[in-house]
Each structure stands twice: as structure tokens, then as C-alpha cells.
């Protein structure tokens, strides 16, 4: 009697366990499905653009200016503009971001000022990009009179990606063990000597990862650049930085009006004719390829970093 009831209980328990195990399996299927949905969207986006834009991707597309006739339009002024803006952004954001990261990790005293700076950087990271555009419009364009130029756009994007650079630098520096610093100090090195000879070289790949991710974000940003009033139809290039008359270097290009890749794509997307949308797809492919290459480089760097360094 009692043995049969206990075997009945065991059987019930077994079915119960089986039922719960089944839920585990169901969840795994749902999880993989959710993951695939994300990846499939990425693939669909890519394939859709490839189908729409492939025929436009011939060499002349890269060497022609935008045109009223879709078949003759190209992205010359857009990619040159993007490149020029990125040069300004990098020149401003990389030193500022790395210096801030070093100060916060190696120098900052435990003090309310440090707290304010840290909280402030976290907040800035969450500010929508279009707000940076409004800042630039009010401050750079109308207060400092920098115009709707490459200079203004570069500065705006630099401020936008500053938090990315800072966080990347801090993470890279934080992964260096304390014993390295103690060793340097024990040999009589000053703070800056420790940073210069040890902290910076060791954290360089990590910092570079953050820099690349930040620049990849900047190159795809559209909203703040529209807000400062970049022109959408530019059929000329900024003046070259190298001239044939002494001093052979010219910074006139900083003040030139410009367009960038995302603006060109936006402009073509908002045209009703489908021919222009093929152009948008082709330019989109180029832009996506740029960001993918940059992000891929960052992932590769991070991967090699994790593999090679064992403290």
C-alpha cells in the first residue's frame, strides 16, 4: 500500500520535473528566436540596401557631385566632407577625452568636484544628440560666429562623443593592476612619468578601441549636423589643406560649407523619385561599410587585447 503510493508520488514527481524541464527548452527556443530576430533585421537591412543600391555603386558614384539627375549624382562632396569633419572631431575629442580619463583615474582626489565631474559625464552620455545640435546652433553658430562650417560640425560631434572617449579611456586604464603603479613609484617615478611610461602604453589598445567606437558613432550622426544648418546640396569641395604657395598649409577648409554622408542619405531618402532612393541605398551601404569596418576593428582589438594580456 505505502510502497505503491510512494511509487505513484515518484511518478508524479517525474512528470512534474519533465514538465519543468520542457519549459527550460521552450525558453531556450524563445531566446534563440529573439536573438535571431535581431540578427535577421541586421541582415535584412543589409540585403535590402544591397539590392536597391548595388547598381549605383560604380567608381563614378564616388567621384561625382550630387546632381538633379539621379543617375549622375554621386557622393564626392559627402565623403570628403565626412572625412574633413572627422579630422576636426578627432583632433578635439581624442586629446580631451583621453586627458579627462587620465585625470579621473590617476589624479582625481576624493572630492566633491570629482563627483560632480563624474555625474556630469554620465549625464552627458544620456543627452540626445539633437540637443548637442541646439547647443552648437546657439553657441558656435550664433554666439561665436563660427558659421555653418566644417569647424562647427567637427566641434559639435567632438562634444557629442566626448563621454564615449572618456569611458573607454577609464576602462582601459582601470584594467591595469595597481602593482604596476606601485613598482613605478617605488623606483622614484613621478605621477606623470608613471602615466607616460607605463599607464598610457599599456592601456593604448583599450583607449584606441574607445576612440574608434566614438568616431564610428560620430560619422553616422545626422541630427546635430542638420540642426546647425548644414547645406544638403553642395557641388564643390572645401579648399585643399595643402597649397602651392608658402606656407603650403591652409586652414581655409575649416570655414567652408559642407555636407556629410548621413545628410546626403537623408536628402536622397526624402525625395519622392525612386531613382534617388537607389542613390540613398548606395550611399547607405558606403556609410554602413565605414561604421562596420570601424566597429569590427574595435572588436578585433578588444578580442586580441583580452587574449594577449595576462597580468
Amino acid at each position: 500500500m505505502s510502497s505503491s503510493s510512494s511509487s505513484l508520488q515518484t511518478a508524479r514527481l517525474r512528470t512534474e520535473i519533465k514538465r519543468r524541464r520542457r519549459w527550460d527548452l521552450v525558453f531556450i527556443v524563445i531566446g534563440i528566436f529573439a536573438l535571431l530576430l535581431g540578427l535577421m533585421t541586421l541582415a535584412t537591412l543589409f540585403i535590402d540596401m544591397l539590392i536597391d543600391g548595388w547598381e549605383r555603386l560604380h567608381p563614378e558614384f564616388f567621384t561625382s557631385f550630387p546632381s538633379r539627375r539621379a543617375a549622375h549624382a554621386g557622393i564626392l562632396s559627402a565623403w570628403v566632407g565626412s572625412l574633413a569633419v572627422m579630422v576636426v572631431t578627432g583632433t578635439v575629442a581624442i586629446p580631451l577625452g583621453v586627458a579627462t580619463g587620465i585625470w579621473l583615474e590617476e589624479y582625481a582626489p576624493r572630492h566633491w568636484v570629482t563627483n560632480v565631474i563624474e555625474i556630469n559625464i554620465n549625464n552627458l552620455a544620456g543627452v540626445p544628440s539633437i540637443i548637442f545640435g541646439l547647443l552648437a546652433l546657439g553657441l558656435f553658430v550664433y554666439s561665436f560666429n563660427l558659421g555653418q562650417s566644417i569647424r562647427t560640425a567637427g566641434l559639435t560631434l567632438a562634444l557629442l562623443i566626448l563621454p564615449v572617449m572618456i569611458v573607454g579611456t577609464r576602462e582601459a586604464i582601470r584594467s591595469i593592476p595597481q602593482s604596476i603603479r606601485e613598482g613605478a613609484y617605488a623606483l622614484g617615478a613621478t605621477r606623470w612619468q608613471t602615466v607616460q611610461h607605463h599607464i598610457l602604453p599599456y592601456s593604448l589598445p583599450g583607449i584606441l578601441t574607445g576612440v574608434i567606437i566614438g568616431m564610428a558613432r560620430a560619422i553616422g550622426e545626422t541630427a546635430p549636423i542638420i540642426t546647425i544648418g548644414a547645406l544638403t546640396f553642395i557641388a564643390f569641395l572645401p579648399p585643399p589643406p595643402i597649397t602651392d604657395a608658402p606656407p603650403f598649409l591652409s586652414f581655409e577648409w575649416l570655414e567652408a560649407p559642407f555636407t556629410v554622408m548621413p545628410i546626403q542619405i537623408f536628402n536622397w531618402t526624402s525625395r519622392p523619385e525612386s531613382a534617388f532612393q537607389h542613390n540613398a541605398a548606395a550611399a547607405g551601404l558606403v556609410l554602413v561599410a565605414m561604421t562596420l569596418i570601424m566597429n569590427g576593428l574595435a572588436i578585433l582589438l578588444r578580442y586580441r587585447l583580452r587574449k594577449n594580456i595576462k597580468w
Partner: peptide, 12 residues
């Protein structure tokens, strides 16, 4: 996916 330029998502 989250690093994609948003203008491309808009097109999509």
C-alpha cells in the same frame, strides 16, 4: 546593430 547610423534605419 546599435552602432548602425540611425539615418540608415530610417531608410529601412
Amino acid at each position: 546593430l546599435s552602432g548602425m547610423p540611425t539615418v540608415v534605419f530610417g531608410y529601412f
